[in-house]
């Protein structure tokens, strides 16, 4: 049954992907293109492109899209999205229970403290990985990067304001 297969496949993707969006791509591709042939490689590239211009985590985006594509019904999307998120629910529920139990443990405090610089490193990594040819491709992109950084540091411009401002700049420059 296709719905169950979709659920299991995306449960697996959710369970074995650490480190967020970009780390999940290879796993999703292996599962939906190579193993199950639910979408072709070309369609998969389209899904990534759509994910980049739409909001939200790439794993949820591709799950929803592939679920609909393969079944032509919302239920396909529901199964894949639920499947890819369920491991998060289970693991986080366990961690909440665990952390509540050992809230005052010096070991847990020490672990959380040691994780902080690593988490900062991972966020930095995401920014560095995004500085690729696809996102920074001409002199204007550099200018937008610098100006938006200055604005967000000194003027505390909100993300939504930044989104609107930079899309207007984009239309004026490139359309």
């Amino acid at each position: 049954m296709i719905l169950l297969e979709l659920f299991l496949s995306f449960f697996k993707i959710g369970l074995f992907s650490f480190g967020g969006g970009y780390a999940m791509l290879a796993l999703i591709q292996d599962e939906v293109v190579t193993r199950h042939h639910w979408v072709t490689m070309g369609e998969f590239t389209d899904i990534i492109a759509i994910s980049q211009i739409t909001p939200g985590p790439i794993s949820i985006n591709s799950a929803t899209y592939i679920g609909y594509k393969t079944t032509n019904s919302i239920w396909g999307s529901v199964m894949t999205t639920f499947g890819v998120s369920l491991p998060s629910f289970l693991v986080i529920a366990f961690l909440i229970y665990f952390i509540a139990k050992c809230k005052n443990s010096p070991v847990l405090k020490s672990i959380l403290l040691a994780l902080r610089p690593v988490v900062i490193g991972m966020v930095l990594t995401a920014a560095v990985l995004l500085m690729n040819k696809e996102n920074i491709f001409d002199i204007y992109s550099y200018i937008i990067l610098v100006v938006s950084s200055v604005l967000s540091y000194y003027k505390k411009l909100s993300a939504f304001g930044m989104f609107i401002a930079s899309s207007i700049v984009g239309i004026l420059l490139y359309a």
């Binding site: 995004l130 500085m131 990067l145 938006s148 993300a159 930079s166 899309s167 984009g170 420059l173």
Partner: peptide
């Protein structure tokens, strides 16, 4: 075109 403008700004965010 709009997304060409948004992409570099996203990095600052």
């Amino acid at each position: 075109a709009a997304f060409k403008g948004v992409k570099p700004a996203v990095i600052s965010l």
